[in-house]
Structure formats: C-alpha cells, structure tokens
Amino acid sequence: MLQWALDALLGLGLLWLAWCALMSPNLLKAIVLFVAFGLLMALAWVRLDAPDIALAEAAIGAGLTGALLLAALARLRFAYADEETVGSPAQEEAKVRFPQWLPAVPLLLVVAGLGYVVLSLPPYATGLSTEVTANLESSGVSNPVTAVLLNFRGYDTLLELVVLLVALLGVWSLDGLALGRETAPGPVLDTLSRFLTPVFILVAAYLLWVGAHAPGGAFQAGSVLGAAGVLLLLAGWRFRAGLTELPLRLVLVAGPGAFVIVALVTMLMEGQLLEYSPEQASILILFLETTATFSIGATLAALFFGGRPQDDKEHT
C-alpha cells in the first residue's frame, strides 16, 4: 500500500511539475522546473527497476539538457535583454486568436484513447526478456541492458552515436554562437571545477567499468565526462589552439569510427556485421564502450560550447 501511495505521489508529482514547467509564465522558472522534472523522472526510473536509465536521465536528461537550455536562455537574454517570455504585441495578438481550449478537445480524446489502449494490454508479457536471458551468456557481459545496447542491438547504438555526431555537425555548420569568454568564473566555480573534475573522471571510469555487469556503461560514463567538460567550460577553460583541429575531431569521431571499424572487422571474420565471437565479445565491448565514452563526453561538451572552437582560424 505504501509502495502504491509512493508511486501515485511520484506520478502526480511528475504531471504537476511537467504542467508547471510547460505553463510557467517565466522562462527561467520553466527551465528550472523542467530540470526538477528530469530529476523526478530519474526517481521514477529507479522505481521502475531501470537504474541504467535513471543514471542516463540524471546525467543527460536533467543535467545536460538543463545546462543546454539555461545556456540558450542566457544567450537569448544576452542578445535581447528585454526578451522575457513572449514576443511583440503583434505576435501576442496572433497567438490569442487561436483559442487555447480548441486543441484540448482532441487531446483529451488522445489521452482517453491511448489510456484505454495501454490498459487493454495484457498484464503479463515477457517481451524479449527470455531471449535476452538465454543469450546473455554468450554476449560477453552480464548486464542485460549493456548486452542489448552493445551486442544484440549494437547496430542501433552505432547509428545513435552517428546521431550525436550529426547534431554536432549541425550545430557547427550553423556557426552556433560560441560560449563567450566574458563570463568570468567566480572563485567558487573555479574551485569547484578544480575539485570536481577529477572526481567526475573517476566516476566516469567507474561507470564504464561497472557497466559490464551492473548499471552503468558508455552513455552514463560519457555523460558524466561531458558534465565535467561543461563544468570546465563554465569555469573558463578552453581547448588549447593546437588541439581544436584534427585531435579534437578525432576524439569526436572515435566512438562511431571505432564502431564502424569493429563492424567491418567482425564481418570479415565472422560473416555478419557486428557478430562477435563469444571469446572476444567482452573485450570488444569494453573497447567500444571506452571509445564511445570519450566521444560522447567530448560531443556533449562541444554541444554545450555551441560554436566551432577556433572557428575563425580554420577559414584563413
């Protein structure tokens, strides 16, 4: 009963926070509420026995997305100091003309319909868990989520790393507004970054290592690394000029690149794309996860940074 009450409370809290975040008249407040919502989501993932996702959500969903949103808001305000929530009066008028209750009607139907569908699903279904358990032995790892991510459905993960790379390419090709240097770090942030960065790196290494048999893995480790990068960037640290060219790009493509190479090599050896022989599976997965961790960390930090580092230099 207590469990039930806890879940109900958590669910209601999620809905309430989401509503407040989406409807708050103040943008800053909306973002802060959204981060809180993300943290509550992490709690929900724990309740749903999904600690892997909880870690990823806390680091990426709430942490990095929140940082990205806040940075974007700061840049919006920096560019347009008077911009608070909505646009000019003309736009305001245009918005008001569309009755806000109108979409609510079909959306209530959507909620009712999807709710009914969800409830109509059978209460027990194994999905693919039996297959996963049966093949876990030969997958090279004992954490089933890692096994699915890096072995059974490794191809998805390869493409997912490509998505990250594409997003970064997109941001860079847009000439994103790079994080300005003028935000001088306060002493607190400076000290904090000096203190926290090694801790973050240690945590990332631990998560990476533990991912093989417990919650954790490349994405969680990578996002912690990314968080360390964000912290460093905020504290005013910048890439050294020599490192922003090829070396940085090499780190960024290391993850998907290593994946593609492994895919090709395994295909040549075993006949199928990403088919690991059971003996080598664990070492291959560890290799892939390590490169992916560096790539994810670097990409997330670069996404946060925004612009192409040393952009002006490249075109001369």
Partner: peptide
C-alpha cells in the same frame, strides 16, 4: 546484424 537474427 550481430548474427542474432530476429527477434533478438
């Protein structure tokens, strides 16, 4: 891919 085959 991966030699597993559907549905896994």
């Amino acid at each position: 891919v991966g030699g597993w085959g559907a549905p896994l």
